[in-house]
Amino acid sequence: MELRELNLGLVEDGLLPEPGQIRALLAQLDALQDLVQGVKKKPNPNAPKRSL
């Protein structure tokens, strides 16, 4: 019962992030982890090519 009350209080106060915000944050953290570890990913074939 206490957890339910805690959850309701957080929702009412607007302190819980939206699911999309959580997914975006996790994607950013994954990218940062790859950068720190030196993981190179294949380029996205659908991404526009950058010209100099």
Score class of each variant (00 low, 15 high):
Glu5Ala: 13
Leu26Thr: 04
Gln37Trp: 04
Gly9Ala: 15
Ala24Asn: 04
Leu52His: 15
Pro19Asp: 03
Ala24Arg: 13
Val11Lys: 12
Leu32Cys: 05
Val11Asn: 01
Asn46His: 13
Glu12Ser: 05
Leu32Pro: 01
Ile22Phe: 00
Asn44Asp: 15
Asn7Tyr: 12
Ile22Ser: 01
Leu3Gln: 08
Leu29Arg: 13
Leu25Cys: 01
Glu12Leu: 12
Ile22Met: 06
Leu35His: 13
Leu52Val: 11
Pro48Leu: 09
Leu26Gly: 02
Lys41Leu: 09
Glu5Lys: 13
Ser51Pro: 04
Pro19Val: 07
Ile22Val: 15
Arg23Ile: 08
Pro43Phe: 07
Gln21Leu: 05
Leu6Ala: 09
Leu29Glu: 04
Lys49Cys: 08
Pro43Thr: 04
Gly38Arg: 02
Lys40Trp: 06
Asn44Cys: 04
Ala31His: 01
Pro48Gly: 03
Asn7Cys: 07
Leu16Gly: 01
Val39Lys: 04
Arg23Phe: 11
Glu2Lys: 11
Leu25Glu: 11
Gln28Met: 12
Lys40Ser: 12
Met1Val: 12
Pro45Arg: 00
Ile22Asn: 01
Ala47Cys: 05
Asn46Arg: 11
Lys41Arg: 15
Gly20His: 10
Leu15Asn: 00
Pro45Glu: 10
Asn46Glu: 14
Asn46Cys: 06
Leu52Gln: 14
Asp34Gln: 08
Leu35Ser: 11
Glu12Lys: 09
Lys42Arg: 15
Leu15Lys: 06
Gln37Ala: 13
Lys40Ile: 11
Leu10Trp: 06
Leu15Glu: 08
Gly20Met: 07
Gly14Met: 00
Asp34Ser: 11
Leu32His: 10
Glu5His: 11
Ile22Lys: 04
Met1Pro: 14
Lys49Arg: 08
Gly14Tyr: 00
Leu3Trp: 07
Asp30Phe: 08
Glu12Met: 07
Glu5Pro: 02
Arg4Ala: 08
Gly38Glu: 02
Ala24Pro: 02
Lys42Tyr: 09
Met1Gly: 12
Pro48Arg: 04
Glu12Gly: 07
Leu52Phe: 15
Glu2Tyr: 09
Arg23Tyr: 10
Leu15Gln: 10
Glu2Asp: 12
Leu52Tyr: 10
Leu15Phe: 06
Leu52Pro: 13
Arg50Ser: 07
Ala47Thr: 02
Leu10Ala: 09
Ala24Leu: 08
Ser51Ala: 13
Leu26Ala: 02
Leu8Gln: 15
Ala47His: 03
Leu32Arg: 09
Gln28Asp: 11
Pro19Met: 01
Asn44Ala: 13
Pro48His: 03
Lys49Leu: 12
Leu16Phe: 03
Lys40Gly: 06
Pro43Ala: 10
Gly9Phe: 11
Asn46Asp: 15
Pro45Gln: 00
Leu29Val: 12
Arg4Thr: 13
Leu6Pro: 00
Asn7Leu: 15
Gly20Arg: 01
Leu29Cys: 03
Asp30Lys: 10
Leu29Lys: 09
Asn7Gly: 07
Gly9Asn: 11
Gly20Cys: 06
Ser51Asn: 14
Leu35Gln: 12
Arg4Ser: 06
Pro43Ser: 07
Leu52Glu: 15
Val36Ala: 14
Pro19Ser: 05
Lys41Ser: 15
Leu35Gly: 07
Pro43His: 06
Gln33Val: 09
Leu52Asp: 15
Leu8Asp: 14
Asp13Pro: 00
Arg23Cys: 05
Pro19Lys: 02
Val36Leu: 13
Leu25Trp: 08
Ala27His: 04
Gln21Met: 01
